[in-house]
Design a binder for these strands. Structure first.
Lengths: 341, 341
DNA sequence: TTGTATGCGTTATCAT
DNA sequence: ATGATAACGCATACAA
């Protein structure tokens, strides 16, 4: 590994001059700069990250907390889109992207390492907290530290956050369905979480504003992305005396289960019953009939998260705490029938 | 940031003793070790990664090259599974996972940084090359360097690789279809690549072994995951005078397009025509009818990649170059009809 | 068992 | 415009 010292010897100048030249300081003659740069290239010089960090305390590395308990997070379409936007943007701005894990063998103590310790250890310039248990003490400890942080889809008081606008999303969907003439709308929502609560409140609120009655039996719960549970809840809804004319599902993926329940009951979408998803995963466009859904702009969500974080890192003084809401967009598939009342 | 020096002052011992104590060397009394460890915990000591690397040349950080030109790689189901296995395994073993990008603002020269330079700079203990253009000179330069490397789904002579056994996969599928009584089998394969070539050869070879004739018009090409192209190729196949009884698709996702073509032609799967996918993405289980496909064990592929790489890192002498083939498993959906001939 | 001293590669301060 | 030198925090060879 060729070092600055090697370069200084080869060029017949001091290490100080080499360092300055490579960092393009003004107090080195253009001529020597060029000579040194050429030599660096020729000798295959690559700066030593460790020494650099030791001096400058800047790693140009961003930590990403992403760890759902199921461990299947990366295969989750929505988060995959977000991560993709995050990764691309981080890289564009000249940073690296490192996952923050909870093990870390370099630990001094045996009993593992907390997220905060890990982040301090790696000296991340900033941390994006994407997908995790936001109630865990470890995460809270991390959030409350003095490391630049942006949370995703979850809001802490005094920290910046980027969130998908679920309230608006559900509102738009209900309005859409309403305008298509539907009045008996059922909602199979996901299991409890901050996101779910927002969606449910928005559902009730919007229905109330529109004067739609929501019988309790129209509200069902199924875990996100759980096709089996969604199948069962859908079946229950279909067996009601007064069957809904439209069912809103937890997400596009879970919808597959609901769709099967409908088909197996001998019914057709959208002729016999209308359906609405959430997320806008790629495949929902290609289903037959294509699914009406709220397309979350996953890429942009990741992008904004990266942008905000890097802005905090690079302009700590002028960058204020803000909660950025990103709206989704209705993808009008063919799964909602126009009812003429 | 509390350092070893701070600890040494607080404990009234030398920095050397503190260092030894924290690294659990044998030549420090158990008693002082405990005292120092307690103090470290109390004062919130976290070792400084940079200094440590500077001394030891070990980062416990693994670089991952993952950059398809489209930039949508992370949302690709198959690769998402692989990355997931890779990430989990890397973390289990106490390493961190960092994406290797091509920008890197820390560069000394303006014209960007090569993959190799970036890896040298970050001093990754090893690099996994997952998804990229394996023909690009930059990648080749990286592969030929002396950094511990494992490639994924692509084999270089003298480097270890983990690959999904496509030859075996296609072979198994064809056998399955054959045993279900099919003799007129069409194959819509992906666009040219090492993987595609393996699959096509295996298809021809297996058919030959089984005495199946493959008319040229039964071989079509559509880009992977391209539902539109697959829709068109399928339509063409359906319009042949002698229509195939079974169509094999490039992948499960693209299949959606093919399925729609079949349905819109007024035909039914599997009664009128049988279908077979490739990959085993989650959703194919939940389609109606469920898709017969070759389930690649993405998680395990990632896992093995990580294991091999870490083995090379930790036992450079005893770890030999090997090409690890991981077999997939047929998922017998209901999309292939049993033909009685 | 503990302590002293040195160097890893870089940058920054202060001279020259 | 260039150079000498200290310092960043840690691990280790060697001395006590």
């Amino acid at each position: 590994m060729v070092s600055i010292k090697d370069l200084s010897l080869a060029c017949g100048v001091s290490t100080a001059t080499v360092s300055k030249a490579l960092n393009n300081h003004k107090d080195v003659s253009e001529e020597t700069k060029e000579r040194i740069r050429k030599m660096a290239r020729d000798m295959g010089y690559v700066p030593n990250f460790a020494s650099k960090v030791l001096k400058t305390n800047r790693t140009y590395n961003i930590g990403v907390v992403f760890s759902d308990e199921a461990g299947s997070g990366l295969t989750h379409d929505y988060f995959a889109m977000v991560l993709n936007g995050l990764k691309c943007t981080i890289e564009e701005k000249g940073y690296d992207f490192t996952f923050v894990n909870k093990n870390g063998s370099i630990s001094t103590w045996d009993n593992g390492v907390t997220y905060l310790e890990h982040c301090k250890f790696r000296r991340f310039d900033g941390v994006a907290v994407i997908c995790t248990d936001f109630y865990s003490p470890e995460i809270i400890e991390l959030i409350e530290s003095d490391i630049p942080i942006v949370t995703f889809d979850y809001i802490f008081n005094d920290r910046s956050a980027v969130v998908s606008d679920n309230v608006r999303g559900i509102r738009d969907l209900v309005h859409y369905v309403y305008e298509m003439g539907h009045r008996r709308i059922a909602y199979i929502h996901g299991t409890d979480s901050a996101v779910t609560r927002n969606r449910i409140s928005s559902f009730y609120k919007t229905c109330e504003e529109l004067g739609i009655d929501v019988p309790p039996e129209y509200m069902r719960e199924a875990p996100y992305r759980d096709t089996t549970a969604t199948y069962l809840r859908t079946k229950e809804l279909l067996e009601l005396k007064e069957r809904p004319t439209c069912i809103m599902f937890p997400d596009d993926f879970a919808y597959i289960g609901g769709f099967n329940a409908i088909t197996l009951a001998g019914l057709k979408v959208p002729d016999d019953i209308s359906t609405v998803g959430y997320d806008g995963i790629e495949i929902s466009k290609y289903l037959e009939p294509s699914l009406t859904t709220l397309a979350q702009d996953g890429y942009r969500l990741g992008q904004e998260t990266a942008n905000k974080l890097i802005s905090i890192i690079e302009h700590p003084k002028t960058s204020l705490v803000e909660h950025i809401f990103i709206e989704g967009k209705i993808f009008p598939g063919r799964s909602v029938k126009k009812l003429t009342t």
